[in-house]
Simulated scan of single mutants.
Amino acid sequence: MSAILPPSDRLWWKQPIDKVEWAWIAIAFVWGMIMFGMMIYWHIYGKQNLSNEAYKTTPELFAAKAEKFIAENTIRTETDQDIPVVRVPPGGDGYLIARLWAWYPILELEEGQTYKIHLSSMDYNHGFSLQPVNINIQVIPGYEHVVKMTPTKKGTYAIVCNEFCGIGHSWMLGRIYVK
């Protein structure tokens, strides 16, 4: 059988499979199984994929929890954007709201402490991408995502929305300060 010309009887699926083709099918299958095993291995031992929690919620319920957290823990307001900077208690929970086209509020964390950051969207799908540490979470309305974080280096970290959310998507930036 030629790869360039179709078979003469036009029923190509009834043609016998050659030994070389079986060999390539076997190689592809074995390679697929190796890659599948590597995904499981890297999830468990590679520490590259977050094992986060997610719970059903409503935008109103999550916004109420976040506003309570903000009211209790605000330490100052950023003058350039009029957004509160909120200190998350060490070992505590912090709340971050995604909505067109902003992350609210700005969080302040301490180096070496472990935190649970709760994320939810008020309107559309958004992407939480913490740079430069490359944490990526898709933030979906109606779900509360909980991500455990332990900052290991002081500095200012950028939160970028990496899920297209409309005309103001490119301006949807947030910050996390690590002291």
Score class of each variant (00 low, 15 high):
Thr57Trp: 01
Ile117Val: 15
Ser120Trp: 02
Val88Pro: 03
Pro84Asp: 06
His43Arg: 13
Ile40Arg: 11
Ile97Glu: 03
Thr79Gln: 15
Met38Ile: 13
Trp101Phe: 13
Tyr124Lys: 15
Tyr115Ile: 07
Gln48Thr: 15
Asp93Thr: 12
Trp12Arg: 10
Ser121Asn: 03
Pro7Thr: 01
Thr114Met: 08
Asp93Gly: 06
Ala54Phe: 13
Asp18Arg: 14
Lys116Val: 10
Ser120Ala: 09
Ile83Arg: 09
Ala28Leu: 15
Lys116Tyr: 10
Tyr104Phe: 12
Glu60His: 00
Ala54Asn: 14
Arg87Tyr: 04
Lys19Val: 12
Ile97Ser: 07
Trp42Met: 13
Leu107Tyr: 04
Met39Cys: 11
Gln81Asp: 15
Gly46Ser: 07
Ala102Glu: 14
Glu53Ser: 14
Ile25Trp: 10
Leu107Lys: 00
Tyr95Val: 07
Ala63Gly: 06
Ile27Val: 14
Ser129Glu: 09
Met39Arg: 12
Ile34Val: 14
Ile40Trp: 12
Asn73Val: 02
Ile83Glu: 08
Ile40Glu: 11
Tyr45Cys: 00
Pro59Gln: 02
Ala28Pro: 01
Val85Lys: 08
Lys56Ile: 10
Pro59Cys: 05
Glu78Pro: 05
Tyr104His: 10
Ala102Cys: 07
Leu100Met: 12
Trp101Gly: 12
Thr77His: 10
Ile75Gly: 04
Trp24Asp: 11
Trp42Ile: 12
Glu53Tyr: 08
Val88Cys: 04
Thr57Asn: 03
Lys56Glu: 11
Ile27His: 02
Thr57Glu: 08
Phe62Asp: 03
Ala54Pro: 01
Gly46Thr: 03
Val86Ser: 07
Val20His: 14
Thr58Met: 03
Gly37Arg: 01
Trp101Met: 05
Ile97Trp: 00
Phe36Leu: 13
Asn49Val: 15
Gly37Asp: 09
Ile27Ser: 09
Ser121Glu: 01
Glu60Met: 02
Asn73Ser: 02
Ala54Met: 13
Glu72His: 07
Tyr45Phe: 14
Ile117His: 00
Leu11Gln: 12
Trp103Arg: 01
Arg76Leu: 12
Glu67Thr: 08
Leu119Trp: 01
Tyr95Glu: 00
Tyr104Leu: 00
His118Pro: 01
Trp13Ile: 06
Pro105Leu: 02
Pro105Asp: 06
Arg76Val: 03
Lys65Val: 09
Trp42Asn: 13
Arg10Val: 08
Gly46Gln: 01
His126Asp: 00
Thr77Asp: 01
Gly37Cys: 02
Ile34Gly: 06
Gly94Lys: 02
Ala63Thr: 10
Gly92Trp: 06
Arg99Glu: 12
Pro105Asn: 06
Gly92Leu: 05
Pro89Gln: 05
Lys68Trp: 02
Pro105Val: 06
Ile75Thr: 11
Asp93Lys: 15
Ser121Thr: 02
Pro16Val: 09
Gln48Asp: 14
Thr114Ser: 15
Glu21Cys: 08
Glu21Trp: 09
Ala98Gly: 05
Ile75Arg: 08
Pro90Arg: 08
Val85Ser: 04
Ile83Asp: 04
Lys47Asn: 14
Ala54His: 09
Ile83Leu: 03
Thr74Lys: 14
Glu67Lys: 12
Ser129Trp: 12
Leu11Tyr: 08
Met33Lys: 09
Pro59Tyr: 06
Val86Asn: 00
Ala26Glu: 05
Ile106Phe: 08
Pro89Thr: 02
Lys116Glu: 15
Glu53Val: 11
Tyr55Glu: 11
Leu119Ala: 07
